[in-house]
Each structure stands twice: as structure tokens, then as C-alpha cells.
Design a protein around this nucleic acid. Structure first.
Lengths: 227, 227
DNA sequence: CGTTGAGTTGATGGAACTCAAATAGCGTGG
DNA sequence: CCACGCTATTTGAGTTCCATCAACTCAACG
């Protein structure tokens, strides 16, 4: 709809692609999704790359029984469907956790652009590899860790990602509800809740619904890495 | 040492790269590692892509306290260090689980080759994306699953990977010991052992040390996906 | 035959799940 | 503004599953 370098792109993780894309004439569409609305569904062929401008989108693996498992939360500045080029139909469904603005960059446009500029190819590969590393990190987050550690790690991760784009702050707004957090961490919402109150009782954090303040980041980090 | 298309390359996951590489003059070194020997260590800059020709190599995240956590087993035909281009120093250490033969393909050679042939770039991206997807799968394997399910899923995964290169067979040889399996699955070796005997008691598998026969794959699959 | 290391089995406690009930938030309409 | 209903979250009690620790089996080896 708009020019790809409109206000906010400088904080967007895809900005480099956008800049290169502008050179090659990349067309970028922006869409708005409401809470609960899917960006793409499991089984569909994903033809585009989704860059989250604002809001939060969860990627859900619906193949694993029940209501599926959340494999990733993508927040402002992050990119979705990076590994979709590997398998024709997507294995995940992407659902907005809250109202979100998303840039949609068609894959063939990206590929076009990357043909003319090898640097784009390189950036792209690094982004894909990074997405893989993040999957490994969330693996480390849930395996061998008990509930308190997982929750601590989750908070630290959210803070780090929030600080990557905002000014350094310890005030955190969690876009998703407890059930989603629990799902993502392989726990139950009750357990997550207990951990929150537990950490709050120790004065490491302060919780008020979706607002969390990190009071003792160091101590939290100590808990995460096996207190 | 040898020509890259020597006997066995047709079963190797990297064969396409090798073939293209031959065109561009890729130099491929082959090395042999004994059990316990590291291919590369955490913190080192990984300059090459490692393709396992035979044997088994485990990738260990040593940052997570104790003796580290195994994030991946690479067996014949699979490729290691695909996401190393995303972060300068490797976050994992790669250790041979048994005596292994490995092809070492320098990254700059790969990049050279990919400059001249866009198809190689594309293959490479798909391989990297696939590695990311596999990380997500192993995430699904340990999260929300109880011990029996994890072990069942592990066996199914090993069988599938073994069948991808051998003739279809239900006879399986596990290259790694129980501790490594337990580590990989986020369990204890005792628990893995119990699950094995449990599944064997149900006549779904037959276990004899490192040799496992899959008797009822369907039933195993049923257990994996939440019996 | 004793030693060593890997693997199995048994007994026990603790962490997290389950079910259930209480409480807090939040938007809606009176 | 307050009452209402709805949902999200917190808290409590009982149960299950797995980690822990320890004993035991088995095979390989000198």
C-alpha cells in the first residue's frame, strides 16, 4: 500500500531486505490482522515472507493433537515463514495474538531481488539460519529445565527482544495470555501462574496481569541457568 | 583426498552440492574421527560444512551447565554446521558418537560455487531451512510429550532416517548409548531403559542392547501422538 | 575369576499435572 | 457510576509421572 520505507522501517528486522528490495522494485503489501485471525494456515503453500511491524503473531503446529503447540511468537521487527521455502505446504498456522500490522513480501519478489544482489541472498541465508538457531534455543528452554527456569528464561528472552527495538527498559508487556505462554513452554497455565507469583514473592519480578517488571535480571538469569 | 564422487556419494545428502561443486572446482577433504573426538568445538569459528558419510556425530550445547545437552544426532548422509553462518563462533561442539567418516567442504568454496550457480544457492537455502524445521520437530518431540511418547518418537525418527538411505527395514542399530538418548530426549537413562522394556513387553519393539527391531510401527506411531 | 562399564530393575520423594473452587479484570448495558 | 456476566488468572488439594539413589545383571576383557 505505502512506500516500504515509511515511518518505523528503521526498527524493522526486515529493513535491509526492504532497502535492497526498493532497488529491485519489491512490492510490499501491508495488512492488518485482528486477534485470532490467521495469516496463513497449516497445509497452505506460503507464497510470502511476513514481517511483523507491530503486534504479535504465534506460529502453531496443529499436527500435534489437541489445540496444537506454539512453536514461536513473532513480535515487532521479526520475520515469519522463513523456512517455508523448504517444504511446499506450511506445517504451521500463524495466528495473531493481538491486533497486528504485517508486511507481506512475496517470495518470488525476494528471489528476484536476490538474483540481482548477492548481498540479499547472503542476508536471507543468515536470517534463515538464525531462525534455526532460535528454534534450538527454545529447545534448550524447555528441555532439562524445570518450570521456574522455563518461565525465567521466557521472561529474559522477551525482555531481550523488547530491548532490541525499544530503549532499554525493564517494563515488559506480554501480548499473549497465560495459556499461550504455558503452551509455548510445555507447561500448564496454572504452573506458569504459580511460577509468576513465586518469582514475585522473591521480589525478582512484579506482575500485574500482562504487565511484568523485571526487578532483578541477574538473579533471574541465575535461576534460568540452574539455580 | 579423493574425488568427490567416489563410491557412496549417491547416498550422501550433500551429493548435489558435490556435483555442482565439482563443476566449480570444489575441494573436498575427507577425514576420519574416532569415538569421542570433536569435529569442532563450541566457540570456534566453523569454516566448513561437514557432511557425514558414515557413523554418527552428536552436536552438544555445552553452555547449558553440566555435561551439556545434545541438540542433534547427525548420521550418514546428513549435514552438520549448516547454521554456523548465522553466528561467527559456533555455539555447539560436535563429537563423534562412533568412528565416522566425514566430508569437509569449506564455506568459502561453497560460497564461490553458489555465486556461479544460483541453483546451488537455492539448494543450500533449502538445506538450511530444513535444518531449522528439524530443530522444530525435535522441539515437538520433547515438549508436551511424556517419556514413552518421546522414546517412541525417537525410534520412529531413527527408523525413518535409516530407511531414507537403506532399503526399507525395521531392524535398527542405535549408534549412541542410553545416556546420549536420554540427554537428547530430556530424560534419564533409567527412564529410557524402562520405556524400552515397557514397549518391548507390549511386543511393539524388540531390544537387544543397541539393536532394536520395530515390530508394530503403527502402534508405535499411535503412542507417539498421544495414545 | 575378578574387574569394569553399560544397562536394567526396584523403592522413594518431589515436581508438575489434574480437577475444582475462588478471585480478579473487563466490557456491556442499565 | 454501578451491577452484571464473562473470561482470564490465581489458589488449593490430591494424584501421577519421572528423577534420584541404590542394588543388581550381563558381557567383555585381562
Amino acid at each position: 500500500m505505502r512506500e516500504s520505507t515509511a515511518a518505523g522501517c528503521d526498527r524493522c528486522g526486515v529493513d535491509r531486505l526492504c532497502l535492497f528490495g526498493r532497488v529491485a522494485g519489491l512490492r510490499i503489501r501491508r495488512i492488518r490482522t485482528n486477534r485470532g485471525t490467521p495469516l496463513f494456515r497449516s497445509g497452505e503453500r506460503v507464497e510470502a515472507l511476513f514481517a511483523i511491524r507491530s503486534g504479535c503473531v504465534k506460529e502453531v503446529d496443529v499436527s500435534t493433537g489437541r489445540d496444537g503447540t506454539i512453536v514461536n511468537f513473532a513480535t515487532a521487527g521479526e520475520i515469519l515463514s522463513l523456512q517455508s521455502l523448504a517444504c511446499a505446504p506450511s506445517r504451521t498456522t500463524a495466528i495473531a495474538v493481538e491486533s497486528s500490522f504485517v508486511c507481506v513480501v512475496p517470495w518470488n519478489a525476494v528471489n528476484q531481488a536476490s538474483l540481482s544482489a548477492p548481498r540479499i541472498t547472503r542476508e536471507l541465508m543468515q536470517l534463515i539460519a538464525k531462525a534455526g538457531l532460535e528454534a534450538r534455543e527454545s529447545l534448550a528452554l524447555v528441555r532439562d529445565k524445570e518450570a521456574r527456569q522455563r518461565v525465567a528464561g521466557f521472561l529474559l528472552n522477551m525482555v531481550a527482544r523488547s530491548q532490541a527495538r525499544n530503549v532499554s527498559t525493564c517494563e515488559l508487556r506480554l501480548p499473549m495470555n497465560r495459556d499461550d505462554i504455558a503452551n509455548y513452554l510445555g507447561l500448564r497455565s496454572e504452573t506458569v501462574s504459580r511460577c509468576f507469583t513465586d518469582l514475585a514473592r522473591q521480589r525478582l519480578i512484579q506482575v500485574k496481569a500482562k504487565r511484568v517488571q523485571i526487578l532483578e535480571e541477574c538473579e533471574l538469569r541465575r535461576i534460568y541457568s540452574g539455580a
